[in-house]
Nucleic acid binder design. Structure first.
Length: 457
RNA sequence: UCCUCGCUAGCUCAAUUGGCAGAGCGAGCGGCUGUUAACCGCUAGGUUUCAGGUUCGAGUCCUGAGCGAGGAGCCA
């Protein structure tokens, strides 16, 4: 491949596929991998991906020496390559962003891939795809989803960092259950008995706000429950802001500004990816504050009505509901189908929520909690509440839930030294990404998913 | 933990009442100057998840096991 040789020490000027439109008419060099090859007589089309996008590269037999053209014609899928050629606009050119292609003048093979690459360019079964996650993520759908994920994470940090919040991460190894209910992963911890992988950083965040005012923790969260649905992972990422001097109404204001920002940012920076996924973008463009706010009581009434109106006995059974129950997945789906924006449901029964939630004034059976349910059946993406700020009430709740008081002494201290009304929430990153991408399974929204049946690869 | 379903070529699937193990894609070779999951021809590719059983004969029926999926519960 003599044509492409460079003098030693010469710095190669590499173009990113995402920037290809800025190089129309110019000669460029792209480094990447051959995603697909279509051989068409005197023409060979290579779809090359470089991490930033997918671009079609065209080899024409008449423009190249025979050896090079023959090598291009037989290059195995997924071979790593350095391609040099001239960019031209062509509406027929596929790719992401697409619309431009490279007329190949030179191509070097860095490694010719083995010929038994297992990922077909068609659909795969779930099990096969997940066993090959390390290769599956190269495919456009997975690549697009994970690009959206990175932008969601960036938007999360951007919003908090520019709105006066301090990033203050919380421990992953913890001495006990935060909320006293979930099943946790445990691990031996030197001479201290068992440590547990965190299911939430919230309690630590409550300590942090008394030093820093507004904080957010962002990290992995672990749940050992044997949940086995398209909405569950055993390891997932959660962002948890906590705010001093903040009540439930103010919390909802924060949540809707925050979520709207994420949506806006994804629409701005990842439109091509959403389009490549076939996502209906007009649905996302409607996501602007304010979001509807309904009480648990109103939601319960709506569900009763929906259940009365259906003739489907199976659906009737699934929608069985009495005041005091938590909403199940079928309930959330029915509720959110009635709205085209995320909807707040606030004021849940105290008995179905965690011990630390502030009671509703004058209605002790209800607490100042709020969930944000995403539309299109994606369900709960945020759970939050105003926290109990009174020391004696909190102590009473700890006793009622049979939690070990000694483990919560530091938490109770927060109510003794300058207690204030405060609130916070936790947002599941993967569920949010699944909603934005229109992904059916949450496991596609994290690079290497961990589920009850899977720790490989 | 409970309910339902699935397992056949590298992948996605078909195989009639129990009667010769099949197709498409992928791979290799050849053809074609515009392919978009191209198309055409040829070639290779199988312990039908496993262990038993019924039968002249089992991918198909029966029993058990394994693995996986969807849903419920719980949650983000």
């Amino acid at each position: 491949m003599g044509r492409g040789k460079r003098a030693r020490g010469e710095i190669m000027d590499i173009t990113r596929v995402s920037d290809i439109a800025q190089h129309d008419g110019q000669q460029v060099t792209v480094q990447g991998w051959v995603y697909n090859r279509t051989d068409k007589g005197k023409l060979t089309f290579l779809l090359v991906r470089d991490g930033s996008g997918f671009v079609q590269c065209v080899a024409f037999k008449g423009d190249l020496d025979e050896t090079l053209f023959d090598r291009i014609r037989h290059i195995p899928q997924e071979s790593s390559v350095v391609v040099t050629g001239t960019v031209r606009a062509d509406k027929r050119a596929p790719g992401i962003p697409g619309g431009y292609e490279i007329g190949i003048s030179d191509l070097q093979i860095v490694q010719a891939a083995d010929e038994d690459y297992p990922m077909a360019l068609k659909e795969h079964g779930v099990d096969f795809a997940l066993d090959h996650r390390h290769l599956w993520m190269r495919m456009p759908s997975q690549w697009a989803i994970l690009r959206v994920r990175a932008t969601v994470i960036s938007a999360i940090r951007e919003w908090f960092d520019t709105n006066g919040y301090l990033n203050m991460d919380t421990p992953i190894l913890t001495p006990a259950a935060c909320e006293g209910t979930s099943t946790l992963f445990e691990t031996p911890y030197f001479n201290e008995g068992m440590a547990y992988l965190a299911q939430s950083g919230q309690l630590y965040n409550e300590a942090n706000i008394f030093a820093f005012g507004k904080v957010y923790a962002f990290g992995p969260t672990f749940r050992a429950e044997k949940s086995k649905t398209r909405r569950h992972l055993t390891e997932f990422w959660m962002v948890e802001p906590e705010v001093a001097f903040c009540d439930l109404d103010q919390l909802m204001d924060i949540e809707e500004q925050f979520v709207a920002h994420i949506v806006k940012r994804v629409l701005k920076d990842r439109r091509a990816e959403l389009e490549s996924l076939g996502r209906d973008i007009s649905v996302l463009e409607k996501i602007e504050p304010p979001f509807p706010r309904i009480s648990y009581d109103e939601a319960a009434e709506m569900l009763k009505q929906i259940r009365d109106e259906t003739d489907d006995p199976e659906k009737k059974e699934l929608l069985t509901f009495e005041w005091g129950m938590d909403f199940g997945s079928p309930h959330e789906t029915e509720l959110t189908n009635r709205f085209d924006k995320p909807v707040f449901v606030y004021g849940y029964p105290t008995q179905v929520k965690a011990f630390y939630m502030e009671p509703w004034p004058g209605r002790p059976e209800v607490c100042k909690s709020v969930d944000l349910l995403a539309p299109e059946g994606y369900g709960e993406i945020i759970g939050g509440s105003e926290r109990i700020s009174d020391h004696d009430l909190l102590l009473q709740r700890i006793k009622e839930h049979n939690l070990p008081r000694e483990a919560f002494e530091w938490y109770l201290d927060l109510r003794r030294f300058g207690s204030v009304p405060h609130s916070g929430f936790g947002m599941g990153v993967e569920r949010t990404v699944a909603w934005l991408c229109g992904t059916e399974h949450i496991r596609e929204t994290i690079p290497f998913p961990r589920t009850i049946k899977r720790v490989y690869p």
